[in-house]
Simulated scan of single mutants.
Amino acid sequence: MADTLDKSFVTAVGLIDGASGRAVVTGMGKSGHIARKISSTLSSTGTPSLYVHPGEASHGDLGMISHDDVVIALSNSGETPELNDVINYCRRFNVPLVAITGRVDSSLAENADCTLLLPAVTEACPMGLAPTTSTTAMLALGDALSIALLDRRGFTAEDFQILHPGGQLGQNLLRVQDLMHGATELPLVGSDATVGNAILIMTQRGFGCAGVINSNGLLTGIITDGDLRRHMSDTLLQLTCEHIMTADPKTIRAQALASEALGLMNANQITSLFVADERKPAGILHIHDCLRAGIA
């Protein structure tokens, strides 16, 4: 497949990227199923797309194709009769047409603005009839187009998450800022506050810890249940937080992936992370927040 790609592939990417409308993908039979998948992949990676059934196109669905669109037509033979009206429509209204076909001398290729030629290989079917190898090659070409367009348009993981809010993909791309508790819920005490006050804050907020901040509001330490147990004495409640805190606690950026935060908590055997920018606390994330979101 890679050996058959030439400058036509670059031309096809340019035509699709240059269209101000959508990428309309069409095909009949098994090619139609591949066309639907290609359209779905294009849409989910930053290139708005839709599938048009060529049979329905002849009965009104040509209206789904605008002059600002680009059409990608799939046919191994290049002679699928149901595509004729789509081809004629594209030529009549100057809609760019990209062909994915196995025959350069076919009607589809001859009328296309750009032709992506499938490699000359036999079908995997013992009779050499059932579309198998050809449809696999079409799918590979469609995926290649999608990824090339993704790269050309600078499509990022953040963009991907916006289009994939559901399922495991969406969960894996959640940011800390999507799950964290905000400033109003922060369990914070001053470094000169007593441990007794810290325990009250820990109890009220329910995160099992309290962040210790200095006079500039910067996070300098953390008090956990473990710190309390390690300093257990008759005078514990009267001690200052600075005296028993663990200095320089682990923090995470709000823009970091939630999966990164979960990994940091697991690696350090902790259950909460303060979200901070240059030690200025902006939120807190508990391990249960990650687990509730399905991040594991």
Rank of each mutant, 00 (worst) to 15 (best):
R91V: 15
L74W: 00
G102Q: 00
P54Q: 07
T80M: 02
S66W: 04
P96G: 12
S75Q: 05
S49G: 05
H67R: 15
S77H: 03
D69R: 03
S49H: 09
L74A: 02
T101N: 05
N84I: 10
S77R: 07
P54N: 06
L50F: 10
D61F: 08
N84T: 14
T47F: 13
L83R: 04
G60F: 15
E82W: 04
N76H: 14
D68S: 14
S77V: 04
A99S: 14
P96N: 12
C90P: 06
L62T: 08
L74G: 03
D85C: 09
A73S: 10
V98G: 12
V70S: 01
A73M: 04
R91Y: 00
Y51I: 04
E56F: 14
T47E: 10
V95E: 07
P96D: 09
A99N: 02
V95K: 05
E79T: 09
I100P: 03
D68Q: 15
V70R: 02
T101K: 04
D85R: 13
V70Q: 03
I100A: 01
N88R: 13
R91G: 00
L50G: 08
M64E: 04
V71R: 03
P48C: 10
M64D: 02
G102W: 07
A73E: 01
N94L: 08
S66K: 11
Y89V: 02
G46M: 10
L50A: 13
S77Q: 05
S75M: 06
S44G: 08
E56D: 15
S77M: 01
V98N: 06
D85A: 14
P54I: 08
G102Y: 00
V86M: 08
G78Q: 00
A57I: 13
C90S: 01
V95A: 07
N84M: 00
A99I: 07
L97K: 00
P54C: 09
L97M: 05
I100L: 14
V98P: 09
S77G: 13
E56K: 09
E79Q: 08
E56P: 10
I100R: 01
G60Q: 14
H59E: 10
I65S: 11
V71P: 02
I65K: 13
G60V: 12
V52M: 10
L97F: 04
L62N: 09
Y89D: 12
N94I: 02
L97D: 06
S49D: 02
